[in-house]
Design a protein around this nucleic acid. Structure first.
Length: 422
RNA sequence: GGAGAGGUGGCAGAGCGGCUGAAUGCACUGGUCUUGAAAACCAGCAAGGGUUAAUAGCUCUUCGAGGGUUCAAAUCCCUCCCUCUCCGCCA
Protein backbone atom coordinates (compact mmCIF):
# COMPACT_ATOMS: atom_id res chain seq x y z
CA UNK A 1 0.00 0.00 0.00
CA UNK A 2 1.26 3.44 -0.88
CA UNK A 3 1.36 6.29 1.57
CA UNK A 4 -2.11 7.87 1.20
CA UNK A 5 -0.49 11.28 1.53
CA UNK A 6 1.30 10.65 -1.74
CA UNK A 7 -1.99 10.13 -3.50
CA UNK A 8 -3.53 13.20 -1.92
CA UNK A 9 -0.70 15.65 -2.15
CA UNK A 10 1.40 14.52 -5.08
CA UNK A 11 -1.04 12.73 -7.30
CA UNK A 12 0.44 13.85 -10.65
CA UNK A 13 3.98 12.69 -9.89
CA UNK A 14 2.72 9.48 -8.30
CA UNK A 15 0.59 8.65 -11.32
CA UNK A 16 3.57 9.27 -13.57
CA UNK A 17 5.76 6.97 -11.49
CA UNK A 18 3.10 4.29 -11.52
CA UNK A 19 2.79 4.56 -15.28
CA UNK A 20 6.39 3.32 -15.64
CA UNK A 21 5.17 0.15 -13.97
CA UNK A 22 2.36 -0.24 -16.42
CA UNK A 23 -0.24 0.82 -13.89
CA UNK A 24 -2.72 3.45 -14.91
CA UNK A 25 -4.03 5.64 -12.14
CA UNK A 26 -7.08 7.68 -13.14
CA UNK A 27 -6.10 11.05 -11.70
CA UNK A 28 -9.37 12.78 -12.45
CA UNK A 29 -11.47 10.06 -10.88
CA UNK A 30 -9.21 10.02 -7.87
CA UNK A 31 -9.40 13.76 -7.36
CA UNK A 32 -13.18 13.64 -7.53
CA UNK A 33 -13.24 10.79 -5.03
CA UNK A 34 -10.87 12.63 -2.74
CA UNK A 35 -13.02 15.74 -2.84
CA UNK A 36 -16.05 13.75 -1.76
CA UNK A 37 -14.08 11.90 0.86
CA UNK A 38 -13.02 15.08 2.51
CA UNK A 39 -16.53 16.54 2.49
CA UNK A 40 -18.26 13.52 3.95
CA UNK A 41 -15.56 12.69 6.45
CA UNK A 42 -15.59 16.19 7.88
CA UNK A 43 -19.39 16.22 7.94
CA UNK A 44 -19.57 12.86 9.66
CA UNK A 45 -17.09 13.82 12.30
CA UNK A 46 -18.83 17.09 12.96
CA UNK A 47 -22.16 15.34 13.52
CA UNK A 48 -20.60 12.69 15.66
CA UNK A 49 -19.08 15.36 17.86
CA UNK A 50 -22.44 17.12 18.20
CA UNK A 51 -24.10 13.91 19.22
CA UNK A 52 -21.51 13.19 21.90
CA UNK A 53 -21.87 16.70 23.31
CA UNK A 54 -25.66 16.53 23.46
CA UNK A 55 -25.58 13.03 24.91
CA UNK A 56 -23.40 14.23 27.72
CA UNK A 57 -25.85 17.01 28.39
CA UNK A 58 -28.55 14.40 28.84
CA UNK A 59 -26.47 12.63 31.43
CA UNK A 60 -25.84 15.87 33.29
CA UNK A 61 -29.45 16.98 33.12
CA UNK A 62 -30.63 13.65 34.48
CA UNK A 63 -28.05 13.76 37.28
CA UNK A 64 -29.40 17.17 38.33
CA UNK A 65 -32.98 15.99 37.95
CA UNK A 66 -33.71 18.47 35.16
CA UNK A 67 -35.86 17.90 32.10
CA UNK A 68 -33.79 16.26 29.38
CA UNK A 69 -36.48 16.16 26.72
CA UNK A 70 -35.18 19.04 24.56
CA UNK A 71 -31.85 17.23 24.27
CA UNK A 72 -33.56 14.05 23.19
CA UNK A 73 -35.27 15.87 20.33
CA UNK A 74 -31.98 17.43 19.30
CA UNK A 75 -30.06 14.21 19.34
CA UNK A 76 -32.68 12.45 17.27
CA UNK A 77 -32.28 14.95 14.49
CA UNK A 78 -28.52 14.69 14.58
CA UNK A 79 -28.75 10.92 14.51
CA UNK A 80 -30.68 10.93 11.26
CA UNK A 81 -28.24 13.25 9.56
CA UNK A 82 -25.38 11.21 10.89
CA UNK A 83 -26.70 7.95 9.50
CA UNK A 84 -26.94 9.48 6.07
CA UNK A 85 -23.43 10.98 6.19
CA UNK A 86 -22.04 7.71 7.46
CA UNK A 87 -23.56 5.77 4.61
CA UNK A 88 -22.07 8.11 2.04
CA UNK A 89 -18.67 8.11 3.68
CA UNK A 90 -18.47 4.34 3.94
CA UNK A 91 -19.29 3.95 0.27
CA UNK A 92 -16.51 6.37 -0.60
CA UNK A 93 -14.06 4.61 1.69
CA UNK A 94 -14.76 1.38 -0.14
CA UNK A 95 -13.88 3.02 -3.43
CA UNK A 96 -10.71 4.45 -1.93
CA UNK A 97 -9.66 1.07 -0.57
CA UNK A 98 -10.23 -0.48 -3.96
CA UNK A 99 -7.66 1.87 -5.40
CA UNK A 100 -5.11 1.82 -2.58
CA UNK A 101 -5.12 -1.96 -2.14
CA UNK A 102 -4.75 -2.57 -5.86
CA UNK A 103 -2.02 -0.02 -6.53
CA UNK A 104 1.55 -1.35 -6.78
CA UNK A 105 4.57 0.05 -5.01
CA UNK A 106 6.67 2.82 -6.51
CA UNK A 107 10.01 1.85 -8.00
CA UNK A 108 13.21 3.33 -6.61
CA UNK A 109 14.75 6.04 -8.74
CA UNK A 110 17.71 3.90 -9.81
CA UNK A 111 15.52 1.11 -11.17
CA UNK A 112 15.74 0.99 -14.96
CA UNK A 113 12.53 2.08 -16.65
CA UNK A 114 11.22 -0.58 -18.99
CA UNK A 115 8.26 -2.53 -20.24
CA UNK A 116 9.03 -6.21 -19.63
CA UNK A 117 11.81 -8.70 -19.02
CA UNK A 118 13.54 -7.52 -22.21
CA UNK A 119 14.45 -4.32 -20.40
CA UNK A 120 16.00 -5.89 -17.33
CA UNK A 121 19.66 -5.05 -16.82
CA UNK A 122 22.44 -7.47 -15.95
CA UNK A 123 24.49 -6.19 -13.02
CA UNK A 124 27.03 -9.00 -12.67
CA UNK A 125 27.89 -12.45 -13.82
CA UNK A 126 29.67 -15.21 -11.93
CA UNK A 127 31.41 -18.09 -13.64
CA UNK A 128 31.03 -18.97 -17.28
CA UNK A 129 28.44 -21.31 -18.77
CA UNK A 130 29.50 -24.88 -18.11
CA UNK A 131 31.17 -26.53 -21.10
CA UNK A 132 30.72 -30.15 -22.05
CA UNK A 133 32.57 -32.47 -24.39
CA UNK A 134 29.20 -33.98 -25.24
CA UNK A 135 25.70 -32.67 -25.82
CA UNK A 136 24.28 -32.01 -22.33
CA UNK A 137 20.84 -33.38 -21.51
CA UNK A 138 18.16 -31.45 -19.70
CA UNK A 139 16.94 -32.51 -16.27
CA UNK A 140 13.95 -34.33 -17.73
CA UNK A 141 16.06 -36.69 -19.81
CA UNK A 142 18.47 -37.16 -16.95
CA UNK A 143 15.60 -37.81 -14.60
CA UNK A 144 13.86 -40.34 -16.79
CA UNK A 145 17.09 -42.16 -17.61
CA UNK A 146 17.79 -42.74 -13.92
CA UNK A 147 14.18 -43.15 -12.77
CA UNK A 148 14.56 -40.03 -10.66
CA UNK A 149 11.65 -38.05 -12.06
CA UNK A 150 8.21 -39.56 -12.45
CA UNK A 151 5.70 -37.15 -13.96
CA UNK A 152 3.26 -39.90 -14.91
CA UNK A 153 2.71 -40.96 -11.35
CA UNK A 154 2.42 -37.33 -10.35
CA UNK A 155 -0.23 -36.82 -13.02
CA UNK A 156 -2.09 -39.87 -11.77
CA UNK A 157 -2.03 -38.56 -8.22
CA UNK A 158 -2.56 -34.89 -8.79
CA UNK A 159 -2.63 -33.75 -12.41
CA UNK A 160 -0.24 -31.65 -14.40
CA UNK A 161 2.56 -29.56 -12.96
CA UNK A 162 3.47 -32.00 -10.23
CA UNK A 163 6.46 -34.29 -9.97
CA UNK A 164 7.36 -37.35 -7.96
CA UNK A 165 11.05 -37.59 -7.15
CA UNK A 166 12.60 -40.95 -6.48
CA UNK A 167 15.75 -42.27 -4.91
CA UNK A 168 18.94 -40.28 -4.68
CA UNK A 169 17.47 -37.24 -6.41
CA UNK A 170 14.80 -36.94 -3.72
CA UNK A 171 17.61 -37.02 -1.21
CA UNK A 172 19.59 -34.46 -3.19
CA UNK A 173 16.68 -32.03 -3.01
CA UNK A 174 16.44 -32.58 0.73
CA UNK A 175 20.18 -32.07 1.12
CA UNK A 176 20.10 -28.89 -0.93
CA UNK A 177 17.43 -27.40 1.32
CA UNK A 178 19.39 -28.52 4.35
CA UNK A 179 22.57 -26.96 3.03
CA UNK A 180 20.86 -23.64 2.28
CA UNK A 181 19.22 -23.49 5.68
CA UNK A 182 22.49 -24.34 7.41
CA UNK A 183 24.31 -21.66 5.49
CA UNK A 184 21.80 -18.94 6.25
CA UNK A 185 21.55 -19.78 9.92
CA UNK A 186 25.19 -20.54 10.63
CA UNK A 187 26.99 -18.12 8.32
CA UNK A 188 24.53 -15.40 7.36
CA UNK A 189 22.87 -14.67 10.68
CA UNK A 190 19.33 -15.67 9.85
CA UNK A 191 17.01 -17.08 12.48
CA UNK A 192 15.29 -20.29 11.44
CA UNK A 193 11.54 -20.70 11.66
CA UNK A 194 9.11 -23.50 11.02
CA UNK A 195 5.85 -21.91 9.91
CA UNK A 196 2.28 -22.84 8.95
CA UNK A 197 1.74 -23.66 5.30
CA UNK A 198 -1.87 -22.53 5.54
CA UNK A 199 -2.55 -18.89 6.33
CA UNK A 200 -5.61 -16.67 6.58
CA UNK A 201 -6.67 -13.82 4.32
CA UNK A 202 -5.32 -11.19 6.67
CA UNK A 203 -1.79 -12.52 6.30
CA UNK A 204 -2.18 -12.81 2.55
CA UNK A 205 -3.37 -9.22 2.36
CA UNK A 206 -0.57 -8.01 4.60
CA UNK A 207 2.17 -9.21 2.32
CA UNK A 208 0.30 -8.11 -0.80
CA UNK A 209 -0.96 -11.35 -2.37
CA UNK A 210 -4.55 -10.35 -1.74
CA UNK A 211 -6.83 -8.95 -2.92
CA UNK A 212 -5.28 -8.48 -6.35
CA UNK A 213 -3.78 -11.92 -6.90
CA UNK A 214 -6.45 -14.14 -5.41
CA UNK A 215 -6.51 -16.26 -8.56
CA UNK A 216 -2.88 -17.31 -8.11
CA UNK A 217 -3.38 -18.96 -4.75
CA UNK A 218 -4.98 -22.22 -3.65
CA UNK A 219 -7.73 -21.71 -1.14
CA UNK A 220 -9.07 -24.36 1.20
CA UNK A 221 -12.68 -25.11 2.04
CA UNK A 222 -12.36 -23.23 5.32
CA UNK A 223 -10.96 -20.10 3.69
CA UNK A 224 -7.30 -20.64 4.39
CA UNK A 225 -4.68 -20.16 1.72
CA UNK A 226 -1.81 -22.48 0.85
CA UNK A 227 1.26 -20.28 1.04
CA UNK A 228 2.74 -19.31 -2.33
CA UNK A 229 6.00 -18.53 -0.53
CA UNK A 230 7.31 -18.52 3.05
CA UNK A 231 7.50 -14.77 2.67
CA UNK A 232 3.83 -14.68 3.71
CA UNK A 233 4.09 -16.34 7.13
CA UNK A 234 7.56 -14.97 7.88
CA UNK A 235 6.83 -11.35 7.03
CA UNK A 236 3.50 -11.46 8.86
CA UNK A 237 5.15 -12.77 12.00
CA UNK A 238 5.57 -9.15 13.05
CA UNK A 239 2.28 -7.80 11.70
CA UNK A 240 0.67 -5.35 14.07
CA UNK A 241 3.67 -5.03 16.34
CA UNK A 242 5.75 -2.09 17.40
CA UNK A 243 9.39 -3.10 17.68
CA UNK A 244 12.26 -1.32 19.37
CA UNK A 245 14.90 0.00 16.99
CA UNK A 246 17.38 -2.18 18.85
CA UNK A 247 15.37 -5.22 17.70
CA UNK A 248 16.24 -4.40 14.09
CA UNK A 249 17.27 -5.88 11.79
CA UNK A 250 15.23 -9.05 12.12
CA UNK A 251 16.54 -11.72 9.79
CA UNK A 252 14.43 -14.85 9.30
CA UNK A 253 14.62 -17.92 7.17
CA UNK A 254 12.41 -20.93 6.62
CA UNK A 255 12.21 -23.92 4.35
CA UNK A 256 8.67 -24.55 3.11
CA UNK A 257 6.79 -25.98 0.21
CA UNK A 258 5.18 -23.31 -1.96
CA UNK A 259 1.90 -23.65 -3.80
CA UNK A 260 0.94 -21.68 -6.86
CA UNK A 261 -1.87 -22.05 -9.32
CA UNK A 262 0.26 -20.65 -12.13
CA UNK A 263 -2.88 -19.21 -13.63
CA UNK A 264 -2.07 -17.47 -16.87
CA UNK A 265 1.01 -19.53 -17.62
CA UNK A 266 -0.71 -22.17 -19.71
CA UNK A 267 1.69 -23.75 -22.13
CA UNK A 268 4.66 -22.10 -20.43
CA UNK A 269 7.43 -24.38 -19.11
CA UNK A 270 5.26 -27.45 -19.41
CA UNK A 271 8.27 -29.74 -19.70
CA UNK A 272 9.93 -30.91 -16.52
CA UNK A 273 9.82 -29.38 -13.09
CA UNK A 274 10.65 -25.75 -13.84
CA UNK A 275 7.15 -24.51 -13.12
CA UNK A 276 5.17 -26.60 -10.66
CA UNK A 277 2.09 -26.14 -8.52
CA UNK A 278 4.16 -27.29 -5.56
CA UNK A 279 7.85 -26.66 -5.01
CA UNK A 280 10.36 -26.35 -2.20
CA UNK A 281 11.95 -23.05 -1.32
CA UNK A 282 14.22 -21.65 1.33
CA UNK A 283 13.19 -18.07 1.95
CA UNK A 284 14.94 -15.15 3.59
CA UNK A 285 13.01 -12.24 5.09
CA UNK A 286 14.34 -9.12 6.76
CA UNK A 287 12.58 -6.44 8.74
CA UNK A 288 14.85 -3.42 8.94
CA UNK A 289 15.20 0.26 9.72
CA UNK A 290 14.22 2.32 6.65
CA UNK A 291 17.76 3.68 6.34
CA UNK A 292 19.16 0.18 6.12
CA UNK A 293 16.92 -1.44 3.55
CA UNK A 294 19.00 -0.68 0.47
CA UNK A 295 22.11 -2.17 2.03
CA UNK A 296 20.05 -5.10 3.31
CA UNK A 297 18.91 -5.85 -0.24
CA UNK A 298 22.52 -6.01 -1.40
CA UNK A 299 23.41 -8.27 1.54
CA UNK A 300 20.46 -10.55 1.01
CA UNK A 301 21.19 -10.89 -2.69
CA UNK A 302 24.78 -11.73 -1.86
CA UNK A 303 23.57 -14.46 0.51
CA UNK A 304 21.49 -16.00 -2.25
CA UNK A 305 24.40 -15.75 -4.68
CA UNK A 306 26.63 -17.30 -2.04
CA UNK A 307 24.68 -20.55 -2.25
CA UNK A 308 25.35 -20.85 -5.97
CA UNK A 309 28.98 -19.91 -5.50
CA UNK A 310 29.35 -22.62 -2.86
CA UNK A 311 27.73 -25.07 -5.26
CA UNK A 312 30.01 -23.76 -8.02
CA UNK A 313 27.22 -23.17 -10.50
CA UNK A 314 27.42 -20.21 -12.90
CA UNK A 315 24.82 -17.48 -12.62
CA UNK A 316 24.10 -13.89 -13.40
CA UNK A 317 22.29 -11.23 -11.43
CA UNK A 318 19.94 -8.79 -13.03
CA UNK A 319 17.99 -5.82 -11.77
CA UNK A 320 14.37 -5.91 -12.85
CA UNK A 321 13.03 -2.96 -14.80
CA UNK A 322 9.97 -1.02 -13.64
CA UNK A 323 7.62 -3.02 -15.84
CA UNK A 324 8.79 -6.45 -14.69
CA UNK A 325 8.84 -5.94 -10.94
CA UNK A 326 6.45 -7.60 -8.55
CA UNK A 327 3.49 -5.76 -7.04
CA UNK A 328 5.04 -4.84 -3.69
CA UNK A 329 8.65 -4.34 -4.69
CA UNK A 330 10.51 -1.05 -4.89
CA UNK A 331 13.60 -2.77 -6.27
CA UNK A 332 14.27 -6.36 -7.22
CA UNK A 333 17.31 -8.40 -8.14
CA UNK A 334 16.74 -11.69 -9.87
CA UNK A 335 19.45 -14.30 -9.83
CA UNK A 336 19.47 -16.49 -12.88
CA UNK A 337 21.28 -19.78 -12.91
CA UNK A 338 22.86 -21.36 -15.96
CA UNK A 339 20.94 -24.38 -17.26
CA UNK A 340 22.96 -26.33 -19.86
CA UNK A 341 19.88 -28.34 -20.87
CA UNK A 342 18.11 -25.18 -21.93
CA UNK A 343 21.28 -23.38 -22.92
CA UNK A 344 20.13 -20.29 -21.05
CA UNK A 345 19.94 -18.57 -17.69
CA UNK A 346 16.78 -19.18 -15.66
CA UNK A 347 15.46 -17.43 -12.56
CA UNK A 348 16.37 -19.21 -9.33
CA UNK A 349 15.98 -16.36 -6.85
CA UNK A 350 14.24 -13.05 -6.55
CA UNK A 351 15.30 -10.60 -3.86
CA UNK A 352 13.16 -7.54 -3.25
CA UNK A 353 13.14 -4.47 -1.11
CA UNK A 354 9.47 -3.69 -0.45
CA UNK A 355 10.32 -0.62 1.61
CA UNK A 356 7.27 0.27 3.70
CA UNK A 357 4.69 -1.14 1.26
CA UNK A 358 4.03 -4.34 3.19
CA UNK A 359 4.76 -2.77 6.57
CA UNK A 360 1.98 -0.23 6.01
CA UNK A 361 -0.50 -2.99 5.18
CA UNK A 362 0.60 -5.10 8.14
CA UNK A 363 1.28 -2.22 10.53
CA UNK A 364 4.79 -3.40 11.32
CA UNK A 365 6.46 -0.53 13.05
CA UNK A 366 9.36 0.37 15.32
CA UNK A 367 10.03 3.04 17.85
CA UNK A 368 13.25 4.93 17.52
CA UNK A 369 15.00 6.49 20.45
CA UNK A 370 14.23 10.19 20.56
CA UNK A 371 11.41 9.91 18.01
CA UNK A 372 7.93 10.12 19.43
CA UNK A 373 5.89 8.36 16.78
CA UNK A 374 6.34 4.77 15.75
CA UNK A 375 7.64 4.52 12.19
CA UNK A 376 7.02 1.92 9.55
CA UNK A 377 9.72 -0.67 9.10
CA UNK A 378 11.02 -1.74 5.73
CA UNK A 379 10.65 -5.36 4.68
CA UNK A 380 12.68 -7.45 2.29
CA UNK A 381 12.32 -10.94 1.00
CA UNK A 382 14.41 -13.18 -1.17
CA UNK A 383 14.64 -16.76 -2.21
CA UNK A 384 17.74 -18.38 -0.95
CA UNK A 385 17.09 -20.38 -3.14
CA UNK A 386 14.27 -22.06 -4.99
CA UNK A 387 15.23 -25.61 -4.10
CA UNK A 388 13.50 -27.38 -6.98
CA UNK A 389 15.15 -25.20 -9.57
CA UNK A 390 18.44 -25.53 -7.78
CA UNK A 391 18.10 -29.28 -8.05
CA UNK A 392 17.65 -28.90 -11.79
CA UNK A 393 20.72 -26.68 -11.95
CA UNK A 394 22.85 -29.22 -10.11
CA UNK A 395 21.63 -32.06 -12.30
CA UNK A 396 22.28 -30.25 -15.54
CA UNK A 397 25.57 -28.59 -14.65
CA UNK A 398 27.09 -31.62 -12.95
CA UNK A 399 26.02 -34.27 -15.46
CA UNK A 400 28.40 -36.80 -16.97
CA UNK A 401 28.25 -38.11 -20.51
CA UNK A 402 26.24 -41.22 -19.71
CA UNK A 403 23.71 -39.55 -17.44
CA UNK A 404 25.18 -39.86 -13.96
CA UNK A 405 25.72 -36.66 -11.98
CA UNK A 406 28.57 -35.63 -9.76
CA UNK A 407 27.69 -34.37 -6.29
CA UNK A 408 28.95 -30.82 -5.67
CA UNK A 409 31.92 -30.94 -3.33
CA UNK A 410 30.23 -28.97 -0.59
CA UNK A 411 27.33 -31.44 -0.48
CA UNK A 412 29.41 -34.59 -0.41
CA UNK A 413 29.59 -34.73 3.39
CA UNK A 414 25.80 -35.01 3.41
CA UNK A 415 26.16 -38.16 1.30
CA UNK A 416 28.82 -39.74 3.46
CA UNK A 417 31.50 -38.79 1.01
CA UNK A 418 29.75 -40.18 -2.05
CA UNK A 419 30.83 -38.33 -5.23
CA UNK A 420 28.50 -39.50 -8.00
CA UNK A 421 24.79 -40.29 -8.23
CA UNK A 422 23.68 -42.70 -10.90
C1' G B 1 -15.54 -33.64 19.76
C1' G B 2 -17.47 -32.47 25.25
C1' A B 3 -17.10 -29.01 29.79
C1' G B 4 -15.35 -24.49 31.69
C1' A B 5 -12.47 -19.70 31.83
C1' G B 6 -10.88 -15.65 29.23
C1' G B 7 -9.41 -11.90 25.20
C1' U B 8 -8.46 -4.17 27.79
C1' G B 9 -2.42 0.46 26.41
C1' G B 10 4.97 -1.93 25.05
C1' C B 11 3.92 -5.80 29.11
C1' A B 12 1.02 -7.19 33.52
C1' G B 13 -3.73 -6.04 35.25
C1' A B 14 -8.44 -3.07 37.25
C1' G B 15 -12.98 -1.33 35.36
C1' C B 16 -18.59 -4.13 33.90
C1' G B 17 -24.08 1.77 30.98
C1' G B 18 -22.77 8.61 31.21
C1' C B 19 -17.45 12.27 35.18
C1' U B 20 -13.15 6.02 31.65
C1' G B 21 -8.94 6.73 26.22
C1' A B 22 -9.29 3.86 30.31
C1' A B 23 -7.08 2.94 37.83
C1' U B 24 -2.54 0.59 39.47
C1' G B 25 2.23 -1.78 38.74
C1' C B 26 6.39 -2.71 35.42
C1' A B 27 8.97 -0.84 31.28
C1' C B 28 10.26 3.73 28.88
C1' U B 29 11.49 9.35 28.73
C1' G B 30 12.78 13.97 31.30
C1' G B 31 14.12 16.19 36.02
C1' U B 32 15.93 16.43 41.39
C1' C B 33 19.82 14.15 44.20
C1' U B 34 25.10 12.13 43.15
C1' U B 35 32.16 12.94 41.39
C1' G B 36 29.55 9.23 38.11
C1' A B 37 26.07 5.23 38.31
C1' A B 38 22.30 2.82 41.13
C1' A B 39 18.44 3.65 44.57
C1' A B 40 14.83 7.16 46.10
C1' C B 41 11.62 11.14 44.83
C1' C B 42 8.93 14.42 41.12
C1' A B 43 6.88 14.76 36.22
C1' G B 44 5.56 12.77 31.47
C1' C B 45 4.16 8.56 28.56
C1' A B 46 -1.47 4.43 23.64
C1' A B 47 -2.25 4.11 18.42
C1' G B 48 -4.50 5.51 13.93
C1' G B 49 -7.25 9.15 11.05
C1' G B 50 -9.33 14.08 9.62
C1' U B 51 -8.71 19.38 9.36
C1' U B 52 -4.37 22.61 8.85
C1' A B 53 1.41 25.74 6.52
C1' A B 54 1.92 23.19 11.22
C1' U B 55 5.30 17.69 14.75
C1' A B 56 0.05 24.28 17.06
C1' G B 57 -5.10 24.01 18.07
C1' C B 58 -9.68 21.51 17.28
C1' U B 59 -11.80 16.88 16.26
C1' C B 60 -13.11 11.56 14.99
C1' U B 61 -12.09 6.33 15.65
C1' U B 62 -10.08 2.24 18.47
C1' C B 63 -10.78 -1.97 25.06
C1' G B 64 -10.34 -9.72 19.86
C1' A B 65 -13.77 -9.12 14.97
C1' G B 66 -18.61 -8.09 13.09
C1' G B 67 -23.70 -6.96 14.04
C1' G B 68 -27.59 -5.18 17.63
C1' U B 69 -30.01 -2.48 22.01
C1' U B 70 -29.58 2.75 23.92
C1' C B 71 -29.92 9.74 23.74
C1' A B 72 -25.14 7.38 25.43
C1' A B 73 -21.45 0.86 25.27
C1' A B 74 -14.83 -1.43 27.29
C1' U B 75 -19.37 -2.17 30.22
C1' C B 76 -25.93 -5.13 28.04
C1' C B 77 -27.52 -8.81 23.78
C1' C B 78 -26.28 -11.93 19.28
C1' U B 79 -22.76 -14.19 15.81
C1' C B 80 -17.85 -15.34 14.72
C1' C B 81 -12.48 -15.78 15.65
C1' C B 82 -8.60 -16.76 18.98
C1' U B 83 -6.16 -18.28 23.70
C1' C B 84 -6.00 -21.16 28.21
C1' U B 85 -7.59 -25.42 31.64
C1' C B 86 -9.86 -30.30 32.11
C1' C B 87 -11.90 -34.79 29.55
C1' G B 88 -12.03 -37.72 25.01
C1' C B 89 -9.51 -38.92 20.40
C1' C B 90 -5.05 -38.87 17.61
C1' A B 91 0.26 -38.05 14.21
Amino acid sequence: MLDPQLLRNDIEATAKALATRGYHLDVEAWNELEKNRKHFQVLQEKLQNQRTVVSKSIGQAKAKGEDAQPFFDQVKEIGQELDEAKKQFEAIQKEVAKITLYTPNLAQSDVPVGKDEEDNVEVRKWGTPTEFSFKPKDHVDLGIKNSWLDSESAAKLSGSRFTVLGGSIAKLQRVLAQFMLNTHTEKNGYHEHYVPFLVNDVAMTGSGQLPKFADDAFITTDDKYLIPTAEVPLTNLYAGTILKDSDLPIKMTAHTPCFRKEAGSYGKDTRGMIRQHQFEKVEMVQIVHPNESNQALEDMTACAEGILKALEIPFRTIVLCTGDMGFGAAKTYDIEVWLPGENQYREISSCSNCEDFQARRMQTRFREEGVKKPQLCHTLNGSGLAVGRCLIAVMENYQNEHGSIRIPKILQPYFGGLEVLS
